[in-house]
Nucleic acid binder design. Structure first.
Length: 400
DNA sequence: TCTGGGGTCCTAGGACCC
DNA sequence: TCTGGGGTCCTAGGACCC
């Protein structure tokens, strides 16, 4: 979906069309009175000179989405609000309306699923589809179907999206970036050298800032240069699995299927404080937040019908370094008090001398409520599988 | 003036088992 | 004065994605 969070707001406030708008901001509620005075739910960035007020409103928030008009100013996703305010003081800030976002997310996904049911969720604003077997899907190399999907989504939601069509997920993801917004791009296997190889390595989904930097040190900047590199060199620098994957990716090869359903691996809640807190001096405040996070995780587990066997915590210190601790239980749980107790034990195992900016609680090793015994059975299967493997080796030894 | 929240996957060492 | 070779689980950290 194109600039999804911002586009959803523009449906409500069409008068903001063409203006620099950023969605995100601090966790503080926007001052309704001030906004009413402006005749909008919108809050213009307060002049940077009025720093305390600005900080109060957008605090430690980051931008989730910026309109294309705002992007002209160098403002973009994941940028801190305070920095965005400096770059584009005239931008209008809107808080994220999660209920509205979820509503439109469900709407566009159900629209696609009606046309192409083999659909994989990729977060709130993105999906993969495998339309190999969709009737008419192959017409004009997929372009007809892509147009149909775009039109259906627009009719239902008023929102635009960009579609990439390719032989696999890796290339489709890259293709979807070629014609934004409201575009369609088709990449064939034969287009690899002309449309993929000139791109920066960073365009590969899975190569982030760290890998990109490491590649730059090897004088590798484009995907073409990456493709030309001996895979052994990549393996030497990035490890066996990642190195081999990078080589394959550079050659446009990807055999991951489109997966329609998956089980969650973990559930977590975390919060960044308005100001850094000290474990001793702000003990009461921290304790209340900690308990609330545990209750939220428990409620999430219960609402979704899961139990967890591993409970963990996460801290972020004032220097932005983070630490995690976790503990695996004998029994599965979704109980807030149990989670609070175990998370408390984890907290005792981590240094608490520096001030904290974030605290989080995580539940992992999940199982659907009522299926604990299946988990244990599978465990036994893998244990006996292990003995079989050992037995086989002994038997082979004896043969020779 | 630093830098959200919710996730997944990978790596690597140690414990433990056969 | 040396001590294998598999495998899984647990834990901590980190890269990356939306």
């Amino acid at each position: 979906m194109d600039a999804f969070f911002a586009s959803v707001e523009l449906l409500r406030y069409p008068q903001l069309k063409g203006l620099p708008v950023v969605i995100g901001g601090g966790r503080r509620r926007v001052d309704e009175e001030l906004l009413a005075a402006q005749g909008e739910r919108a809050l213009r960035f307060i002049p940077v000179a009025d720093f305390p007020l600005l900080k109060d409103y957008v605090g430690r928030g980051v931008i989730t989405t910026a309109t294309y008009a705002a992007r002209q100013f160098g403002v973009g996703s994941a940028m801190g609000m305070m920095k965005a305010a400096k770059l584009c003081p005239q931008a209008i800030v809107l808080p994220v309306d999660f209920d509205e976002i979820r509503k439109y997310s469900r709407l566009f996904k159900s629209t696609i699923a009606e046309i192409a049911p083999l659909m994989q969720d990729r977060g709130v604003d993105e999906v993969y589809i495998d339309f190999t077997d969709v009737p008419g899907g192959q017409r004009e190399g997929g372009r007809v179907l892509a147009r149909l999907i775009q039109k259906s989504i627009f009719d239902k939601t008023g929102l635009t999206c960009s579609v990439g069509v390719a032989p696999n997920k890796l290339l489709a993801k890259m293709a979807s970036e070629f014609n934004k917004p409201n575009g369609i791009s088709i990449v064939h296997e034969g287009d690899l050298q002309t449309s993929i190889w000139p791109l920066a390595c960073r365009k590969i989904n899975g190569i982030g800032p760290k890998a990109d930097e490491k590649l730059a040190r090897l004088h590798i900047h484009t995907i073409g240069e990456l493709a030309a590199l001996d895979p052994a060199v990549l393996i030497a620098h990035f490890g066996k699995a990642t190195g081999a994957w990078m080589h394959e990716a550079a050659w446009g090869r990807d055999d991951r299927p489109v997966v329609t359903e998956s089980e969650p691996v973990s559930m977590s809640r975390e919060t960044t404080f308005d100001r850094d807190l000290h474990a001793v001096r702000d003990k009461a405040e921290l304790g209340a937040i900690f308990t609330r996070l545990c209750e939220q995780v428990a409620a999430d587990l219960q609402r979704k019908g899961y139990l967890a066997k591993t409970i963990g915590i996460k801290l972020r210190y004032d220097d932005f370094k983070s630490a995690t601790r976790d503990q695996t239980l004998e029994q599965f749980t979704a109980d807030a008090k149990t989670i609070r107790k175990i998370a408390g034990l984890c907290l005792k195992r981590v240094p608490l001398d520096k001030r904290l900016r974030l605290l989080g609680v995580r539940a992992a090793t999940l199982v659907k409520a009522g299926e604990e015994s299946i988990y244990e059975q599978n465990r036994h299967v893998s244990q006996s599988g292990r003995s079989h493997a050992a037995t086989e080796i002994i038997a082979t030894d004896q043969l020779f």
